[in-house]
């Protein structure tokens, strides 16, 4: 190779370690030059960080309790499968809101912000974290005004159910928040946490995958593609393995 100029230093993984957009935040890393060989670095990779259990990261204790109650309404516990709360859906949402998703990281958030048509997509400077906070405050207020000062998480489960149905039917309006639309978002998020890999905090012990019969993060069904109408026999496995594989300290 004759071009001396292109033998710039290769800080490949330093550039790539985060997601690609990191490089637009004033990182000093150079552009990468690729020549002669594949730019391979041993042990490079960008594995996910499993969430750690423990106190709320984003929610206040009351917000957390409210979202847990919502999670159990959206996915009620039954005899075979835990509900949204015990499956960890609220923890999932808390950790998502505390992370890049909550802050709209990587999205286009330049002004002006104008109200558009629904099919033009979300147009707001506020990210999901702030929107959750505002929704939960308005939701709490509406619950207290209807049920004699009681927050949602203290209501009887039948009252909780009826209250949510009324929000869906727009019989209950929330202050400054589109309750119906936001509740639909909560439904989506609770269900997403339930079905995502357990490393994100929901789907604890792969309860959701066991419920539906999804075998998880397997990689090879070569022997099974031609076995028609036969039940796949293996239990699910997550990206961080399976509870039985881990020592008690890791569980």
């Amino acid at each position: 190779m004759t071009d001396k100029y292109s033998r710039l230093s290769v800080h490949r993984r330093a550039v790539l370690a985060g997601a690609a957009y990191l490089i637009f935040r004033g990182s000093r890393a150079n552009a990468t030059t690729i020549l002669d060989h594949l730019p391979w670095t041993p042990n490079a990779g960008n594995p996910p960080d499993p969430v750690t259990l423990g106190p709320w990261v984003y929610f206040t204790p009351d917000e957390g309790r409210t979202v847990e109650a919502l999670a159990d309404q959206i996915i009620p516990p039954d005899r075979e499968t835990p509900g949204g709360k015990d499956a960890g859906s609220a923890v999932y949402i808390d950790r998502q809101l505390a992370g890049p998703y909550g802050r709209q990281e990587g999205l286009y958030i330049r002004p002006p912000f104008m109200k558009g048509m629904k099919n033009q997509g979300h147009q707001s400077e506020k990210g999901p974290a702030q929107e959750y906070r505002e929704f939960l405050a308005a939701f709490d207020k509406a619950s207290k005004s209807r049920f004699g000062g009681k927050p949602f998480f203290e209501l009887l489960t039948e009252d909780q159910h009826r209250f949510l149905k009324d929000i869906e039917a727009e019989k209950v309006k929330l202050d400054d928040v589109d309750g119906k639309a936001f509740f639909a978002q909560v439904v989506k998020d609770v269900q997403m946490g339930f079905f995502a890999d357990p490393l994100y905090g929901g789907n604890r012990d792969m309860v959701a995958w066991k419920m539906i019969g999804f075998p998880g993060a397997r990689y090879n069904y070569l022997d099974w593609v031609g076995r028609h109408n036969e039940k796949f026999p293996l239990p699910p496995v997550g990206l961080t393995g399976r509870a039985e594989w881990n020592t008690r300290a890791q569980r």
Binding site: F24, W40, G45, Y101, G106, L107, M192, A196, D197, Y219
Partner: peptide, 29 residues
């Protein structure tokens, strides 16, 4: 490349790659 960006140890992650679009351009860009 596969060994670094989507290896069989953590590639099967629906939330990261499908829902949060890990491998795609960012609208911010």
């Amino acid at each position: 490349d596969s060994p670094t960006d989507f290896p069989p140890t953590y590639m099967q992650d629906e939330l990261r790659y499908r829902i949060r679009h890990e491998l795609f351009a960012r609208p911010e860009q």
